[in-house]
Simulated assay, not measured.
Amino acid sequence: MARRRSRQDANIWPGFVDGLSTLLLVVMFVLSIFVVAQFYLGEELTSKETELTRLQARIASLADQLGLAETERDQLRQRVLSLQDTIEQKDDELAGLTAALAESQSAVAASAEELDAEKALSEEQKSEIATLNAQLAALRRQLASLQEALEAAEAKDEEQQAQIENLSSRLNAALARKVQELADVRSRFFEALREALGDRDDVRVVGDRFVFESDILFGSCSATISPAGQAELRKLAVVLLDIQDEIPGEVNWVLRVDGHADAQPLGPGCRAYFEDNLQLSSERAMSVVRFLAQNSVPERRLVAAGFGSNHPLVQGGDLARNRRIEFKLTER
């Protein structure tokens, strides 16, 4: 019985080996198919990637072409607009040429010989000749008109230039004459005033001005002319009235009265009447102008100005000399 079991076990093993071999062959076959499928799939993927790269490059190229096409489209639009403007200009020119052609045809119709010659020409030649004739006539008219305008402009320019030079020369001569006349009158005025006032240390000539120290005309911190100051100003008014007839009528002269003060601040009592030295000097100048006007000097020949302490005669030392009234005979 043991021998029978051993024989049966020996019979099972070959079948098991055969089944296992068959299974191994099947597995190897499946693996082979899988490897082959992987190979072909890899090739296919590589091909697809290559195709995808080519398509991307194509898309980029098309995008560039699209950008160029849009640029070209914009240029074409601008060109179309330009051509439209050109067409409108040509339409205007055509209208003018049509009118010129009609005029030319009317003139040609008056001559039988010219009419026969016109009939012998083709319509195209007739149009070209008429256009050229009209353009030539228009250019000749424009040239003649421009030449006339140029000649007129040159003549007018020469005439105006001569007038300007003449007026400039006359004006300079007149100004020089007026300046000299006024200087002569001022010199006589100063001389006569010096004689009328006598030899005084507190009245002097400084440049083109006659200078009165304020102490002659006003009391301390006052814009009211003192009696002594009124007497001196009456002498000035008399001299001015005597000499005004010697001033040429075309000289528009004025006597400018300038008030000046020193840099010393006003005291408390003085500030009750005047805000500062500028107001004090202005009020004094106006008081002198009013007094001269009351003594027959024409008001239109008088001007008052206050400068405060802005234009001192001296720096340091006797600052009282900066408190003064100046008279300047000048042209308005």
Rank of each mutant, 00 (worst) to 15 (best):
V206G: 00
L182Y: 03
L236S: 07
A155G: 15
G207F: 05
F189Y: 10
L143S: 14
A173V: 05
L182E: 03
R200F: 03
A130G: 15
E181W: 01
Q125T: 12
Q147V: 13
E191W: 06
P227T: 06
P227R: 03
Q244K: 12
E246I: 02
G249R: 08
N172F: 04
Q161K: 15
D215M: 07
L167W: 10
C221N: 10
E250G: 01
F218M: 01
F212T: 04
A152Q: 14
V211M: 06
L146Q: 14
A196N: 04
A176P: 00
A149W: 09
Q125R: 14
D184E: 11
S222M: 03
Q163I: 04
R177K: 11
A231C: 00
A144E: 15
N252M: 05
Q135H: 13
N133Y: 14
K156I: 05
K126N: 14
V185H: 07
R186M: 05
L241T: 05
A162G: 12
A174N: 08
L150T: 10
G229D: 03
A162V: 06
L167V: 07
L146V: 10
A130L: 14
Q244W: 01
E181C: 03
A130N: 14
Q163N: 05
I225P: 03
V179W: 01
D208C: 00
E165L: 09
A231R: 09
R170L: 12
A155V: 08
N252S: 12
L182D: 03
G219W: 02
T224V: 13
S169E: 10
A162H: 10
L171W: 00
E250H: 10
S168T: 13
G198Q: 02
I225E: 01
L171G: 01
D199N: 15
T131E: 12
L182C: 05
Q147C: 11
A144D: 14
Q160S: 08
V211R: 06
D201L: 09
A144P: 01
A176F: 00
L175M: 04
E195I: 11
V238A: 08
V211N: 05
Q125F: 08
D215N: 03
G229S: 02
I216E: 04
N133G: 12
G207D: 11
A155E: 13
A183Y: 01
E250A: 08
Q163D: 09
S187F: 07
F210S: 06
Q135A: 15
I225M: 02
D245W: 07
A130S: 13
Q135T: 15
G219T: 07
A231L: 06
R170P: 00
L197C: 02
R141M: 10
Q161W: 05
L150Y: 09
E148G: 15
R141A: 15
A162K: 13
F212Y: 09
P227C: 02
R186W: 04
E159I: 03
V238S: 10
V205D: 00
A228F: 05
F189A: 08
L150P: 00
E232R: 13
R186G: 06
A152I: 10
C221A: 10
V238W: 02
G198T: 04
Q160W: 06
Q180V: 03
A153W: 12
T224G: 00
A176I: 00
G229F: 07
